[in-house]
Design a protein around this nucleic acid. Structure first.
Length: 654
RNA sequence: GCUGCCGUAGCUCAGUGGUAGAGCACUCCCUUGGUAAGGGAGAGGUCGUGAGUUCAAUCCUCACCGGCAGCACCA
């Protein structure tokens, strides 16, 4: 032990001030030295960058910042964390035989997993919330103690808490403190930090949301626990804002809008497969036509490959060994087949694309060769994974594979990022994040190859932005990859685009080209997609726009509605002219009032409603009403058609 | 795939151990109405499927199918 330590340490505050304090001073004492009111309001500190409990001692010179509820990230972290404990305490007070496990902070709140024979009911949640409020109102002081491993294990064994025993045992025995956290006479294992007392929690800023089963430690071979989710914010207002956000998300649910807008449906006989209706298919085709043009301009060649392929190809590609559980396997009915062959519906397009590449001898002069396919794929996804258009079993990707030399990866990647950002912008997404996933532990290819591929991707990204994250070890075994996550109108993130290097498949399927040296070489294969699957992307578009798609994507762009039946002929005529001009227009000459028609088409998210009464018939005009606006405008039909045609032009053709 | 909940008319949902109801939508009639629901009448379901318990099942039990939420999965 060092005996020549100075009895004081120097603490540096955010404003640059430096103050001397006794060695071992707590953050609470530091706050108190500044002012009694700060001491009262303080919730935690940041000491040398670490989130620090007010009660923990500081043993050396450090930078320090004292936090109050004004400091949102720290406040939310503490509130959610402590509420997890308060909830666990409330549950054990009500049901003493329930066993506690873990309760981490997550986005917007926390959860806590309990081992209990019966699941919690919604009534239980109300009861737990009430007990939590009582604990908060009791303003129980919080204190932490440092225990030895042996004591902690003995303690939990004595209390019959096997999960906690397992948790303590899992803490590496490297001298890090094992902290016990107490409020009142209830106690939990926790690394902290925590609030001063339970009274600092917002008694009306949280809500228990739902109950779900969850595996202990996420392992599907281990017991299922009862998980309770809560959300928490600093105030009742923030909580309300969040609940409103959830309501907004619910209103945008593409499954509901898909029904209301008559876009698509699902049914039992084909779970996870979309039945596209005329309206939905119209959106699909507008998007596909757009992508086809963009890919063509970017130098891709479109191809089409089989959907049902003999298992031999899947064995060669490695899918039969690694992906078979997710594949739809077909067998030909023996009565009708001369030979019995086992086929599979393709879950991916890449092996077929290599077959196209392999036809004819390729020269380095052919590279890069960019083969695109709107490839219809099928994957047997687990029942529980299916979710509307977002997770389906039959889908179509905007897929393409670029066959190139290693030296071309960087340029191809840069061009791809440029294309992707332009496409996202056209589709209404202004923000997206990039993630670079690098070599995993188990991988194919030499370290030198990985070095070059990773830096090619990184260099390509850097040409566009320095704002990207690296996820070490998360690459595929066959090569590094970039993932692109876009942000929608209400702040949710969706991973859609991807760019993956593959050194393995060309090898497995024997792809080669003749180099300048006259010898045969392996091409690198780049898997890439911008939208991901059309199905899922359309789901994202619907939710992003809350159904109010931009005119060029809207299934019914214009509805022409008569106000009186004497205007019906004129409505039919205008509709025909709109269609002749290339617009998707419908006539509504039903025997209904204009109010009724306007309401119905507004709910159906039709962007433009034209109302035609006798005045319009006589003047050759139309009364134009835009979705979401109550004002109308009367415009000459000829001008209107020109205007709408211009507006309905896809962004790449403007 | 796992846990929990759910499955009644096209949609949203109510309901009962003795073979079912509402609102909207739909059809017809009246109404010709100027920008988010005009009025009236009518039609529509063997209550997800199969088995069991029972004198009797839409209702209770079990299995299966599908959906929802979460988990796991997303080579």
């Amino acid at each position: 032990m060092s005996l020549d330590q100075s009895p004081t340490i120097a603490l540096t505050f955010p404003d640059g001030a430096v103050r001397a304090h006794p060695r071992g001073v707590t953050a609470m004492q530091v706050a108190a030295a500044i002012s009694p009111s700060l001491a009262k309001k303080a919730i935690s500190a940041t000491v040398n960058g670490a989130h620090w409990d007010l009660a923990w001692p500081i043993d050396a010179d450090a930078t320090i910042a004292i936090h109050t509820m004004q400091d949102q990230p720290q406040a939310l972290e503490l509130i959610r964390h402590d509420l997890a404990h308060v909830m666990a305490r409330a549950v054990q007070e009500i049901w003493p035989d329930v066993k506690v496990t873990i309760g981490p902070v997550i986005d917007n709140g926390w959860y806590y997993d309990f081992d209990r024979a019966e699941p919690f009911t919604p009534d239980d949640l109300g009861q737990i919330e009430a007990r939590m409020r009582a604990i908060i109102n009791a303003r129980d002081p919080v204190r932490t103690e440092v225990w030895s491993r042996a004591d902690a294990i003995a303690h939990y064994e004595g209390r019959g808490e096997p999960y906690k025993v397992e948790l303590v045992q899992a803490i590496p025995d490297d001298g890090q403190p094992i902290r016990m956290y107490w409020h009142g006479d209830w106690q939990d294992l926790c690394r902290g930090p925590h609030l001063q007392h339970t009274g600092q929690l917002p008694s009306d800023g949280f809500k228990l949301m739902k109950v779900a089963g969850a595996y202990w430690r996420g392992d599907s071979s281990r017991p299922v626990l009862q998980r309770i989710y809560g959300v928490a914010f600093r105030s009742r207002e923030d909580l309300k804002a969040y609940l409103n956000f959830l309501e907004e998300a619910e209103k945008r649910d593409h499954r509901r809008l898909g029904r209301e807008m008559e876009l698509f449906h699902f049914q039992e006989e084909a779970p996870g497969m979309v039945f596209w209706h005329p309206n939905g298919w119209s959106v699909y085709r507008a998007l596909e036509d757009y992508m086809r043009r963009r890919l063509g301009v970017a130098g891709y060649k479109e191809i089409r490959t089989p959907q049902v392929v003999d298992r031999k190809l899947w064995e060669a590609s490695g899918h039969w060994a690694n992906y078979r559980e997710n594949m739809f396997i077909t067998e030909i009915d023996e009565e009708h087949a001369n030979e019995k062959r086992v086929n599979a519906l393709k879950p991916m397009n890449c092996p077929c694309h290599v077959q196209v590449f392999n036809q004819g001898l390729k020269s380095y002069r052919d590279l890069p060769l960019r083969l695109a396919e709107f490839g219809s794929c099928h994957r047997y996804e687990a029942h529980g994974a299916l979710h509307g258009l977002m997770r389906v079993r039959g889908f179509t990707q905007d897929d393409a594979h670029i066959f190139c030399m290693e030296s071309q990866i960087e340029a191809e990647c840069a061009a791809f990022i440029g294309l992707l950002s332009s496409v996202y912008r056209d589709l209404g997404f202004v923000k997206f994040d990039i993630k670079l996933s690098t070599r995993p532990e188990v991988r194919a290819g030499s370290d030198e190859t990985w070095d070059r591929a990773e830096s090619a991707l990184e260099n390509a990204v850097r040409k566009v932005t320095n704002d990207y994250v690296v996820d070490p070890g998360e690459g595929a075994f066959y090569g590094p990859k970039l993932d692109f996550k876009l942000t929608d109108a209400i702040g949710r993130e969706w991973q859609c685009g991807t760019f993956q290097c593959d050194f393995v498949l060309p090898e497995r399927l024997g792809a080669e080209y003749v180099g300048p040296d006259g010898a045969k070489h392996r091409p690198v294969m780049l898997h890439r997609a911008i939208l991901g699957s059309f199905e899922r992307f359309i789901g994202i578009l619907i939710e992003n726009y809350a159904g109010k798609l931009p005119l060029w994507l809207a299934p019914r762009q214009v509805v022409v509605a008569s106000i009186v039946s004497d205007a019906d002929a004129c409505v039919t005529d205008i509709t025909a002219r709109l269609r002749a001009a290339g617009l998707r227009a419908e006539a509504d000459t039903r025997n209904e009032k204009i109010n009724y028609k306007v309401r119905e088409h507004s709910l159906g998210k039709v962007p433009v409603i034209l109302a035609i009464g006798m005045r319009e018939v006589e003047d050759g005009t139309a009364s134009v009403r835009r979705l979401g606006e109550s004002a109308t405008e009367t415009v000459a039909v000829d001008d209107l058609i020109d205007r709408l045609v211009a507006e309905a032009t896809p962004p790449d053709l403007r």
